[in-house]
Nucleic acid binder design. Sequence first.
DNA 1: ATTGCATTAATGCCTCGAGT
DNA 2: ACTCGAGGCATTAATGCAAT
Length: 345
Amino acid sequence: MASTYPFEASFEELSAHADAFVDEVFASLESGFLVMPRGQGFVAFPDFENGYETLKQVTENFSKLEEPIIFATALRVPLVLVVLRTMLGFTPSEWAYVAGQSSGLEITQGFARSLDRKIRLNPMTPLRPSPVIEPRIRALVEIACKMLSDGAPTTPPELLHRLDKADTRGGLSSAKAAAAMGVPYAMLLYERFLGRPFAGHRDSISELVGDVLELAIETELTNAGISFRKTRRAERVPGFDQAPDFIVPSEFNPQIVIEAKITEDDGTARDKVTRIQHLASLSASGGPSLPRGFEVIACIGGRGFKQRREDMKKMLLATKGKVFTVKTLTKLIEFTRLKEFRTTR
DNA sequence: ATTGCATTAATGCCTCGAGT
DNA sequence: ACTCGAGGCATTAATGCAAT
């Protein structure tokens, strides 16, 4: 085979040796799941512990859970709310639902989510709720106190109550015991097993993971002095049903589009392949506000793409070989039409 | 403040083919 | 003919942020 990398190959070479090029791309893909960004809203353990200790103090070692006291404390140390939610083992949405049901107030899932997010972003900033917000927070605290005090009701054996866990099963006495004596390592592991490890945090930084790749592309483009338009989340760009991540030189004149995707999951990878194929067909057909024949470039990362040989073939053919990974990103400009837009050496 | 959108991971069900 | 595993596919849940 004459060419090493798919982006150097002619279309004839590409289709003749598709499998070899798939191997080449696979070889340069690596997985990055072992490390993840902390992100803005990451709650470090000392902060979380501070919330916990505060709650433990004002409840006198979890011997009494009273709404007025906890509400006042939560305003002062907002992480108390996060700790309460963790004791319940609920998502913000779920907490909002039970609070709404029991209080009769309208407490939307979005409200609980943004409150939780706000606290995680600024754990040390006291809350100053407006008259509209205050009763909602009170209702959240109220229902948490009640549920944590009552513990899990008995359920038929085939059902499992969400409060049926070590520290909440028997109401306050369970929490009290857990706080005083700790919980066995096996119990910690069991909880971890039920909730996939780092799930909440992973979900919240899911977009930052992709940023690493996007930033690398941005650097390449900027260094070469190439004009580009980077689209934002859920942005609408005329001509595209879903906006590609980069458009060169601008959204009004799409000559080159770049899709950047990292995934560790094969289902997601499949989805991305479909999307890139769709871009390729848009390029072939053109559209009301799209010139025909714009170049489609894929920049990919993560082991998810390794799972699917057939899909990778499709992607290589759809992009005419213009598939880059973190390892080959330095060749991005040289081997694509991007070089036509270069203004610096 | 609320809503809608895109993104991501995880999971169950289905199909297909290899091996017994 | 049957079993088992792998891969494909669709669905679900959770999340942050731009738009409203």
